[in-house]
Every structure is written in C-alpha cells, then in structure tokens.
Computed example of a mutant assay.
Amino acid sequence: MNINLMDMVGRRSYNCDILFRVIDIRKINDQRMAILYGEDFRLVADAPYEDLIAINQNERAKMTEEYRNLEEQSFRLFTQDVDLIKQRQEYEATGGYVKSTNYFQIPGKVLHLDGDQSYLKKCLTLYEKIGIPVFGIHCNEKEMPGKIGQLIDYYRPDILVITGHDAYSKAKGKISDINAYRHSKHFVQTVREARRKIPHLDQLVIFAGACQSHFESLIHAGANFASSPSRINIHALDPVYIVAKISFTPFMERINVWDVLRNTLTGEKGLGGIETKGVLRTGMPYQPIQEEEE
C-alpha cells in the first residue's frame, strides 16, 4: 500500500503505539525516510518508509478513544475548578452580601505560538470553549526566536505559550545535552528573547516546550511552566489546561504547581513549573458596551 503526505500511520517497530501524520518523505543515504508528527502528542519522529502502516478511520477511532476520554475528563475537572473560582470571586466581590452586584472579570490574555497548524487549531477551539481571550500564531519552531519580540509588542499578552514539536535523540548525545533535542534550543532561545522584553515572571507568564523537551533549560531561561521533566510525550492540549488555570486564577493569589498540573492529561512526569501568580482581575459595576446610534 502506498503511503502519501498527510496519511495517518503507525510504526511497525513500535507496535503502532502512537498515531502519526506523514509530513514529509525524503531520501537519506539511499533509504526512503518519512518525517512524522504525532496526531495526539507533540512529538516529531522519523522512520523508514517500510516501517509505516497506514491506519484507516476505524483503527484511528480505536487508537484515539482513550485520549478523547481523557480530554473530556480533563475538561470536566477544569470547568469544576473555574466554577469554584467564580463562586469565590462573586462572594468576595459582593462582600458576602446577598444583594446581587454587577461585576465583570478580565481573564488573562494569551498569545499562543505553535509549530503545528493542526494542533494550533485544536487548541484555539478549546480556548474558545473555555472562554479565554487568545491570539494564535502558526510559526516554525526555528523562526520563533526572531519573531517573538515583535509579537509581544503587538499583542501585549499576559500569558505566552511557546510550543510545537520536539524529540530527544539518543544518537545525538546525552539526555543532558540540549543539542540532542530537535527543537528545545529554539524554544529556549524564544523564552530568552521574551524575557528580554518582560523580565518579571508575574508580568508575563510563559509556558514552553513540547514532547520530551529539555525541561531544566526552559525553566532556567525564564519559563514559568515547561515540559518535559521525565522526557515523556505530552498531549497536544496540555498547554491549554495550564494557561487556562493561570488565566482564571485571581492576580492576588499564587498558584500551587500541583493545582495546575493535576487536571492536565500528562501530569507531573511530562509537565512542571514554579510558583506563579494568577492574572484574573475582577471589577464593577458591569456596563454593557453601548452601540452608537447613526
């Protein structure tokens, strides 16, 4: 069976454990190699063309059912968290009085840079579902360091997401060597450039990384949250759940790291961070925007 660009495939040598999209097919040392992007995980891999197996729609549904269930569970737990935050904020905004008060909330504004257009689309759909103001930019990982400064000036975000694809290659070096990772050094450079603009960790909250990324370097460069402490794969939607928690936590409160990680799909093996302030602000009274009469 011929396998073409954008086909869904698995790898025979890995018992088709992860669903991939074929992004490129090229010849390397007289062998046909395929460049693969994970469909549910932020992983990039290459594999011999002969190692690939095409995955049909029914098989794909079976392979992704577990992840869809996890996504629904994470979303349900997250919305419960947000409801509790809103109830507490309403009580504090009204001073505990029974009398209803018109108040409004301004959640943190997100700038999301993603090296994968398909993942970006999935993330933007979830941001909208949750109710977070977001600007999404599709950008190749290698180009991110050169573009981030201008993007921060233009969008002025409260929260910055720097993500896409990554992978550790044992053949390229030790696990401590950042050059053994496909895009970790680009993510690190992007975080550093962002911190040149806004050094304070609570004025711009940064999530950075993808599957198997060099966690320590990203945190050292200035990220508040990053992947991947145990060098495991992270789910495509994990960055959304992290920044959503930050976006809906009041700016006077500090976020316990475990509170952020517990409703993600990957957990503390794939994600980590440092204590960080929330960015939600509450005001009153609520005034609807009046449209001018012509």
Rank of each mutant, 00 (worst) to 15 (best):
I3L: 02
N4A: 05
L5F: 13
R11P: 07
S13L: 10
N15S: 01
L19W: 08
I23K: 14
D24I: 01
D24S: 13
K27A: 08
Q31P: 03
A34C: 14
Y37E: 14
Y37A: 07
E39D: 13
D40V: 01
F41C: 04
L43M: 09
D46S: 11
A47L: 04
P48E: 14
Y49R: 03
E50H: 10
I53Q: 10
Q57W: 11
N58H: 13
E59P: 03
R60I: 02
K62W: 11
E65I: 02
Y67F: 15
N69Q: 11
E71Q: 15
Q73C: 00
L77G: 03
T79D: 00
Q80F: 08
L84V: 03
R88M: 11
R88T: 04
R88P: 05
Y91P: 01
E92Q: 12
A93Q: 13
G96C: 07
N102I: 00
Q105W: 10
P107K: 05
P107A: 04
G108I: 07
G115F: 12
S118G: 03
S118I: 06
T125F: 10
K129G: 06
I137N: 00
K142R: 14
M144I: 01
P145L: 05
Q150I: 01
L151T: 00
R156A: 09
I162H: 06
G164K: 00
A171T: 11
G173L: 02
K174W: 11
I175D: 04
D177Y: 12
R182A: 12
S184N: 07
H186A: 15
T190V: 02
E193S: 07
I198S: 04
P199D: 11
L204P: 08
V205A: 06
V205R: 11
F207K: 04
A208S: 15
Q212I: 04
S217Q: 13
L218K: 02
I219G: 08
G222V: 02
N224D: 15
S227L: 03
R231N: 12
I234E: 13
A236V: 08
A236C: 07
L237R: 05
L237K: 07
Y241F: 15
A244T: 04
K245G: 05
I246V: 15
P250M: 03
E253T: 04
I255M: 15
I255Y: 11
I255H: 08
D259W: 12
L261K: 03
G270C: 06
G270Y: 11
G273H: 06
E275N: 06
E275D: 11
T276Q: 09
G278N: 06
L280D: 13
L280R: 05
Q287F: 12
I289V: 10
Q290D: 08
E291K: 12
